[in-house]
Write a protein that binds this DNA or RNA. Structure first.
Length: 839
DNA sequence: AGCACGCCGACT
DNA sequence: GTCGGCGTGCTC
C-alpha cells in the first residue's frame, strides 16, 4: 500500500487531512486528464479553473488548468505534486471547462488541443531551464574535477541558469558538463516559470498629497519662487491637472513624458522635485484600447432597419437563434449596434464574431466610435499581450463587449446575452489545420445555449445549412432586401470571353467590355475593383519545347510564379525556388507563363493604363503588420484608381467611390470539384459585387468574365436570386444526402509511403463500412492535391444521416478503429486526421 | 507535442 | 571503437 492510500485511510478526523488530488488539463495532445497531488498549503487556495504549474515527464515543467478536485488517489501510480498555483481566482470559467470538454468529444480531439488554442500563449508559461543542486545526491566519488567544482558552485546558489553557470565555471562546455551531472543525478534541471504577460506600463507623476489642498499648494509655489525652473515644472503640471479647483484630480497624476517635454532643464528640475518628494512617481498599466473614441453616437435606423431590429427582438422571444438575411449594403451593422446597445444596457455580455479578414477594417472603427473602450478587440494580428488584456478585461468586467475572430469563442464570458456571427456563411469560421477543427459559429451557438444567450447569424448569402434551419422554423428568420439610403443594387452583366477571344477583341486577360469600362471609370475619376482569386503572377511555368512544367518537389502541385519576388513558390508547403532562365529539362529558352494571378493583372493594367494608380491587395502585399490597413486607407482616400485583389477584397469593405467591379475567372470558382462549389461561387461573386455602388449618386456596374454565360448560378447572381439558388441547392443536397441532411466526418490518412498510406486507408474504410454500411463510408479517394510535404493522402468520408444515428457512438467507434490501425506494427507512423463537419 | 531511450551507420 | 540518425513509447 502506498503512502497516499495510507493517508486517506487515516484521514477521518477533519476534511483538511484528506489528500486532495487535482485532475488537470495539460496543453498537450494526449487524450486524457492527468492527476496530481495538491500540497497541504495549497488546498485552500486551489480552485477549479485556476492554472497551476506541474512537472511533466522527465524534464519538463508546464502550465495546466484544474478541471476537477477530488480525494480519490490514482490506482496504478503515485501522483506527482502540483508545484505552484498561478491564479488566486479561476482564470477559466466553468462554462469554458464545459466547452473544452464538449469540443474534445464533438470534434474528436484531445482536450489539451482545445486548451492550446483557447488560451492565448501569454497565459501559458515560458520556460527557461535552470539548474539546481540535488540535495539527495551522495556519490561525490562519481564526479570528475570539473564536475565537482561546478557542483560546489551550485551548492552556494539556490539555482542558476545555464548562462550564469557558464560565467562561474569559466571556459568549459557547460551544457555537456550539466548533462553529465544530470545523468549522475547530482543536479536537477528545472524550468523557471514566469508569466509572459507584461502589461504595458506608463510612468506617471503626481504631487505629494501634502500639497493637494489649495493653501498648501500656494505655499509650495511661493517656496519655489527662488527656484524658477522647478516652479515652472509645477506650473506645467497644474496646467494639465487643474487640481487647484479639484484636488482629487491629483490622484490620477500625469504622464511623466508630458512634464519632461523635450528640454533637459525641466528634466533635471523634475528630478530634484521628485527627490525632494514634492512629486511622487508611480506606474500604471496602460490600457491598450484607451484612446481614440468619441462619445456615444446616436445610431439612427432607417424604417426598414428599425423593422428588422424589432422583428429580431420579437423572434428572440421564442427562438434562441435568428438568421438575419440582409443584402449587401442593407446596413446590417446599424441593426447590430442597436441590438448590442440594448443587450449591454440589460447588463449582459455581447460577443460579436467576424471573419478574420473583415475585422481589420472599417467595421471595427465604426463600432469603436460607438462603444469606445468598453469594447475589446480580439484579433490574431494583435500581440499576445493585447489578447491577454482582453481575456483579463472580460474577467474584471472592463469589457462587456468583444469583437473578435473565430478564437474569441474561447473567451471567459459568464453572462452572455447575445452572440452575433456576422458573415455567418464564411468558411474561415472553420479551423482547418491544427486540431481542434472547430466551427466558431457552431461552438458559439453551443456556448450561447448554455448561457441562455441569443444568437444572431447575419449574412447577405447565408449558408444553405443555416437557411434550411431557418426555413424549418428551428431558427428565426428576418430578411432585409432594401439597400441602405437610396443606393441601388449594382447592375451586373456577364462578359463572354470565349466570344471575345474568337473575335480577337481581348486585351490579354481583359475583355473589351471590361477594358472600356475601366477606361471610362478612370476618366470619370471613379474607382474600380478587380477580383481574381489567385495570387502570384501565374499558377505555373511551362516549356514550349518539352513537357516541363514547374512542379513542387514535395507536393503534387505546380509552383506558382511570383514575378515581384522573382521566385517560384509552392502554396502548400512554402517551398521556394529561383526562376529558371532556361528550361531545366531541355535547356530551351521558350519558358512561358501559363494562367494568371493578381500580379499579372496588375502588370497588364499598368501597361494598358500607364497613368492609372494601381494597387494590388493579396496575401503577398499584406504580410507586413499594417499593410492591409494602409492599402485600405489609401484606397479610401482616393489615392488609388484600381484595386486588384483576391478573396480579401470581398469582405466588409465599404467604399463610397467604387462604381465598377470586375470579376475574372468566374468559371474556375464555379467548377471547383466540391459539392459546395455552386454555393461558394454565388456567395463569393455576390459579395464582391456588393462592393460596387454603395453610394446613391451612381449605379454601380459589375462585369463578370466567363466562358459560359448560360450557367444558371450566374443568372441567379445577376437577379440577386438567393432563394432560387437555395431551392436548387437544397434539392441537390437532399438527393445526394449532403448537409444539412447529413453530417460529414472526413478522415485523412497520411504517410510518406504511398502503399502504406493506401493500405491503412483501405483497411480503415473496410472496418468502418462493415459496421456503418457501404453507403455511409465513401472513399478512400485521393484528394485534389494527393501529396503534400511528401506525404501521400487519402480521404475517407463518413456520411451520417441526421436522424436515427447515434453520432456519439459512431464517433467512439471511429476512434477505436483508428487507434487500432495506428497501433498496428505494419502501419507505423501513419497519421490520421479527423475533421468533423468538414467543409 | 516533447523528450528519452535504444539500436544501427560514418567518422575522429 | 564513439557520435548521432530518427523509430518507439510514455507522460499523472
Amino acid at each position: 500500500m502506498n503512502e497516499t492510500a495510507t493517508n486517506t485511510l487515516f484521514s477521518y478526523s477533519t476534511t483538511e487531512e484528506i489528500t486532495v488530488f487535482a485532475d488537470l488539463i495539460l496543453p498537450i495532445p494526449v487524450p486524457r486528464l492527468f492527476t496530481y497531488r495538491v500540497k497541504r498549503d495549497m488546498v485552500e487556495a486551489i480552485k477549479v479553473g485556476a492554472r497551476v504549474i506541474v512537472p511533466f515527464g522527465k524534464s519538463r515543467v508546464i502550465t495546466a488548468v484544474v478541471a476537477k478536485l477530488h480525494n480519490q488517489p490514482p490506482q496504478n501510480y503515485q501522483a506527482r505534486y502540483v508545484l505552484e498555483l498561478l491564479d488566486e481566482y479561476p482564470l477559466v470559467t466553468g462554462y469554458q471547462l464545459q466547452l473544452f470538454d464538449w469540443m474534445s468529444t464533438y470534434y474528436m480531439c484531445c482536450i489539451g488541443e482545445v486548451l492550446n488554442v483557447a488560451l492565448p500563449s501569454g497565459l501559458k508559461i515560458t520556460s527557461q531551464s535552470k539548474v539546481q543542486f540535488n540535495p539527495d545526491f551522495d556519490y561525490p566519488e562519481l564526479l570528475n574535477e570539473q564536475e565537482s567544482a561546478l557542483l560546489e558552485q551550485l551548492k552556494k546558489h539556490p539555482s542558476l541558469s545555464y548562462e550564469e553557470l557558464g560565467r562561474l565555471a569559466g571556459e568549459v562546455n557547460v551544457p555537456t558538463l550539466i548533462k553529465s551531472l544530470v545523468d549522475k543525478r547530482a543536479v536537477i534541471v528545472f524550468d523557471e516559470v514566469k508569466e509572459k504577460y507584461v502589461p504595458k506600463m506608463v510612468r506617471k507623476v503626481k504631487l505629494h498629497p501634502n500639497y493637494e489642498q489649495p493653501e498648501q499648494l500656494l505655499a509650495l509655489l511661493q517656496r519655489l519662487d527662488k527656484l524658477p525652473k522647478q516652479q515652472e515644472v509645477v506650473m506645467r503640471y497644474l496646467r494639465h491637472v487643474p487640481m487647484q479647483r479639484n484636488p482629487a484630480l491629483n490622484k490620477n497624476g500625469l504622464d511623466k513624458t508630458i512634464l519632461n517635454q523635450d528640454d533637459e532643464l525641466s528634466q533635471s528640475s523634475l528630478g530634484t522635485l521628485i527627490k525632494n518628494e514634492v512629486f511622487l512617481t508611480f506606474e500604471v498599466i496602460q490600457p491598450r484600447f484607451a484612446d481614440t473614441f468619441s462619445p456615444q453616437k446616436e445610431i439612427k435606423l432607417t424604417p426598414a432597419q428599425q423593422t428588422a431590429a424589432d422583428s429580431i427582438m420579437a423572434q428572440f422571444g421564442e427562438k434562441g437563434i435568428v438568421l438575419f438575411h440582409g443584402i449587401t449594403g442593407s446596413g446590417k451593422t446599424e441593426v447590430y449596434i442597436d441590438l448590442v446597445q440594448k443587450v449591454l444596457a440589460s447588463g449582459s455580455q455581447v460577443l460579436y464574431l467576424l471573419p478574420e479578414i473583415a475585422l481589420t477594417t472599417q467595421i471595427v472603427v465604426r463600432l469603436q466610435k460607438v462603444f469606445g473602450d468598453k469594447m475589446g478587440i480580439y484579433h490574431s494580428k494583435f500581440s499576445d499581450n493585447e489578447r491577454v488584456e482582453v481575456w483579463k478585461g472580460i474577467v474584471s468586467g472592463q469589457f462587456q463587449f468583444v469583437v473578435g475572430v473565430r478564437s474569441a469563442v474561447f473567451l471567459p464570458f459568464d453572462n452572455l446575452g447575445l452572440v452575433i456571427v456576422d458573415e455567418e456563411h464564411e468558411t474561415s469560421y472553420k479551423q482547418h489545420d491544427p486540431a481542434p477543427r472547430y466551427h466558431a459559429r457552431d461552438v458559439a451557438m453551443m456556448m450561447a445555449q448554455w448561457q441562455q444567450a441569443k444568437v444572431l447569424l447575419g449574412s447577405a448569402t447565408p449558408s444553405i445549412e443555416t437557411y434550411y434551419q431557418a426555413k424549418q422554423g428551428r431558427y428565426g428568420l428576418v430578411e432585409l432586401f432594401q439597400r441602405y439610403g437610396d443606393a441601388n443594387l449594382p447592375f451586373i452583366a456577364l462578359v463572354d470571353v470565349k466570344r471575345e477571344r474568337k473575335q480577337k477583341t481581348m486585351k490579354n486577360e481583359f475583355s473589351s467590355v471590361l477594358y472600356e469600362a475601366l477606361a471610362d471609370n478612370l476618366e470619370r475619376k471613379q474607382q474600380s475593383i478587380l477580383f481574381q482569386n489567385r495570387r502570384g503572377y501565374s499558377p505555373y511555368l511551362q516549356c514550349e519545347d518539352c513537357e516541363w512544367t514547374s512542379q513542387c518537389l514535395n507536393c503534387a502541385v505546380s509552383l506558382t510564379y511570383h514575378m515581384r519576388a522573382a521566385e517560384l513558390r509552392c502554396h502548400y508547403c512554402g517551398h521556394k525556388e529561383t526562376v529558371p532562365k532556361v528550361c531545366p529539362t531541355c535547356g530551351s529558352t521558350k519558358v512561358k507563363t501559363v494562367g494568371y494571378g493578381t500580379e499579372k493583372l496588375e502588370d497588364q493594367l499598368q501597361i494598358m493604363f500607364p497613368d492609372a494608380r494601381i494597387q494590388r491587395m493579396d496575401l503577398d502585399t499584406t504580410r507586413a503588420k499594417n499593410a492591409y490597413q494602409q492599402i485600405i486607407s489609401e484606397f479610401e482616400a482616393g489615392k488609388v484608381d484600381i484595386l486588384v485583389g483576391t478573396q480579401m477584397i470581398t469582405k466588409g469593405l465599404d467604399f463610397d467611390n467604387v462604381s465598377l467591379v470586375g470579376i475574372f475567372d468566374a468559371d474556375r470558382i464555379i467548377h471547383f470539384p466540391e459539392f459546395r462549389a455552386t454555393e461558394r461561387a454565388f456567395q463569393m461573386i455576390t459579395q464582391v459585387s456588393g462592393r460596387a455602388g454603395r453610394r446613391a449618386d451612381r449605379q454601380g456596374r459589375v462585369l463578370i468574365q466567363t466562358g459560359n454565360p448560360t450557367q444558371p448560378v450566374l443568372q441567379k447572381v445577376i437577379d440577386n436570386d438567393y432563394l432560387g439558388l437555395y431551392e436548387d441547392e437544397i434539392g441537390e443536397r437532399r438527393d445526394f444526402n449532403y448537409p444539412p441532411f447529413s453530417r460529414l466526418i472526413k478522415l485523412t490518412v497520411r504517410h510518406t509511403d504511398q502503399r502504406i498510406s493506401k493500405r491503412a486507408a483501405d483497411r480503415l474504410r473496410a472496418e468502418l463500412a462493415e459496421k456503418l454500411g457501404d453507403e455511409r463510408v465513401l472513399g478512400p479517394e485521393e484528394p485534389l492535391v494527393e501529396r503534400i510535404r511528401n506525404q501521400f493522402l487519402y480521404d475517407i468520408l463518413v456520411k451520417l444521416e441526421k436522424d436515427k444515428i447515434n453520432v456519439k457512438a459512431v464517433k467512439t467507434f471511429i476512434q477505436e478503429r483508428i487507434t487500432d490501425i495506428l497501433t498496428d506494427k505494419g502501419l507505423r507512423q501513419v497519421s490520421i486526421v479527423i475533421d468533423v463537419d468538414c467543409l
